[in-house]
Write a protein that binds this DNA or RNA. Structure first.
Lengths: 360, 360
DNA sequence: GGCGCGTCGGCAACGGGTTGCCATGTATTG
DNA sequence: CAATACATGGCAACCCGTTGCCGACGCGCC
């Protein structure tokens, strides 16, 4: 069994290498950190010796003198939400391309947790990407004063932001529903602290205005499947034929919740989500949704952060806007498919109660 | 716009506090790191001054002298796989309880990436949790010699391990299928480098032996939905009535792939997965699966790692085994539901080709 | 009064690179 | 050939806490 309490082998330092290569420690240091600053032959010799001795540069020590940890924090609202998986991938890839390490922080949809975690981590990282932050604008600005910060999925004045084209996404969804004959759309709201939630609703208001489609809102609900199921309950009290959900998880919850109450999707109700998570393609019927370039989001935000860390000013003018697209599946359909039929949309047929899951 | 290039306010150090409080820097240091070592009045005064000056202890500097970064690495095979979300949560919670920060590393199912990432990160962290590592035993042992390591979902001699009770899980699944009248089970294999894949197959062999159920294996396939869809193709060439898939993602791929080919689940084929990911409850039919206590896995592994970091020897005897349970949903059913009917199970009816997803 | 012990604070040596500045030597230029 | 420029390497300070060791001081006890 390995004994970690007292490693017998002392660490090899630049001083050891310096002695062995018969140069000064500074030369060893430069041979690695600024090779151009030292004669190439000398550098080569130093490298050879270092190799032979098994020298590994200590990032910690480097950190202390350069005040760069080469780490960035990536804060996400909820690791359980699959949207973040691709964002994380994009961010990690960009970070690792720049030789940075990513510290992932899961805020668990809590303002407080998020703030505490960021406070705790801030001094250890060179910069922060806030993906779907639930913190207040002022809190974010405060952090942005102390460290480079890039905000994802949210627009805040004076802080660099990367967002997706929510207005256009909503517009596409509304157009799509409009073409299918829907003249009322119900927005099922997500967390109030979520910036996309706000802009999606506002965009819907606007699009409804232009396209002469009536809109209303219910919620807020938790941005999860369970939240969608709760929304389904409420929706039963105030029926609708077309629903735009804050995100795919809620949309899936709606599909399930309504399905259990005998509502036919898309026959009775058309549902559109946001994010295009994997499950949107798994649920029955497949979910029509506004897809965002998740990987690109994480990657763009992180790359921008890295340039800021390297000293660039940080583009705080207009946020960077990433394009979206509407993925049409089978949760949306023409209103009243059989026009002659006078059946009200919410008549309950085949009320299949959700079969209890048998646990072993 | 904040200027991060040259913060005008220099950092407050113990030296600043020392001058102001009229004590030596060591006293300031001790006032924070070993309060018992200093007079309580002095400590209080120091703390007041520190507060007034806005002193914050620098974790980086502390790190250099104590050789403790208070960070641990958590390596997962694929962040896209939802199983890891709960594991990450458990690990993060445990880490943060111990005042440790977690660095998440996504190996993207690649042995090489994983090894490189661990090598890169190793010197910066106090310990490592390898969740579902794809590296070789010897590579893992090598890392374990240099840093405390806990392995999750895998058993390796001389390295502390946390695993779930795969044999029992398989056994339950086989019993369940057996009770439904199945006498053949096909195992759809996942990555060969995956330890659970191996043990699940061996457990299946054994359970089959005892319960007089014939077993066979196809694969390996990628442990993803796409992998499951490919497996469905191959399965068509060699039909089966009961399938045990390496994990839920593959099982879902199977359900979809077979569904597209007109195979009825569970009428023609019963399918059981592993992990009980959220999507298992979303897919139609709901997936019967072997559920593991994911949160507890991450938490237990991390807690054990922390004790090792604090100097405990690291329990390398038998791996810690966590219980599993079978969650029965609707992807499993009795074989030949209408016994009188002589129709071969693989007759294709209602061949619903997967409708092409329209992209906008 | 003398001695031993416990408490408390300071000194100084780390930990392991980084870098501004200077000295030396060589190359380039007028 | 003198003057200047550039390449290269070393010195020493610095980053910011931590900790082993020592000395000063106060107290209790014999």
């Amino acid at each position: 069994m390995p004994d970690h309490t007292r490693p017998p082998d002392k660490r090899v330092t630049i001083y050891d290498v310096a002695v062995e290569a018969d140069v000064s420690p500074s030369t060893v240091s430069r041979a690695f950190s600024r090779p151009s600053r030292v004669n190439s032959e000398t550098a080569e010799r130093v490298r050879q010796v270092a190799e032979r001795l098994g020298y590994r540069t200590s990032p910690l020590a480097r950190t202390l003198s350069t005040a760069r940890t080469h780490m960035i924090a990536l804060v996400i609202a909820d690791i359980t939400n699959p949207v973040y998986a691709e964002i994380v991938r994009g961010a990690q890839e960009a970070a690792s391309d720049g030789a940075y390490t990513t510290v992932l922080i899961d805020a668990q949809e809590s303002d407080r947790r998020e703030r505490e975690a960021v406070e705790r981590t801030m001094s250890t990282v060179d910069g922060i990407v806030l993906a779907s932050s639930r913190m207040s604008d002022s809190a974010i600005r405060m952090f942005a004063k102390q460290r480079p910060v890039v905000v994802l999925n949210r627009a805040i004045a004076d802080v660099p932001c990367v967002v997706t084209d929510n207005p256009r996404g909503v517009r596409r969804a509304v157009e799509h529903l409009g073409e299918l004959g829907h003249d009322h759309i119900t927005y099922v709201a997500g967390p109030e602290a979520s910036w996309p939630n706000g802009i999606r609703w506002r965009s819907l208001l606007e699009a409804g205005m232009e396209l002469e489609i009536k809109v209303r809102q219910i919620g807020p609900f938790s941005p999860t499947i369970a939240g969608g199921e709760r929304a389904a309950e409420e929706l039963c009290a105030r029926p609708a034929t077309a629903v735009l959900a804050f995100n795919d998880q809620m949309a899936i919850g709606l599909i399930r919740g309504l399905g259990q109450r005998g509502v036919d999707i898309p026959g009775d109700v058309s549902i559109v989500g946001f994010d295009n998570i994997v499950a949107a393609d798994i649920v029955t019927p497949g979910l029509t949704t506004v897809a965002a370039p998740l990987y690109a989001e994480g990657s763009a935000a992180t790359r921008h952060l890295l340039t800021m860390i390297e000293g660039a000013p940080g583009h705080t003018g207009r946020p960077m806007v990433l394009p979206v697209r509407l993925v049409v599946r089978h949760s949306t359909a023409a209103r009243n498919p059989s026009p002659g039929r006078a059946r009200p949309p919410w008549v309950r047929r085949r009320p299949t109660p959700h079969p209890a899951t048998r646990l072993w």
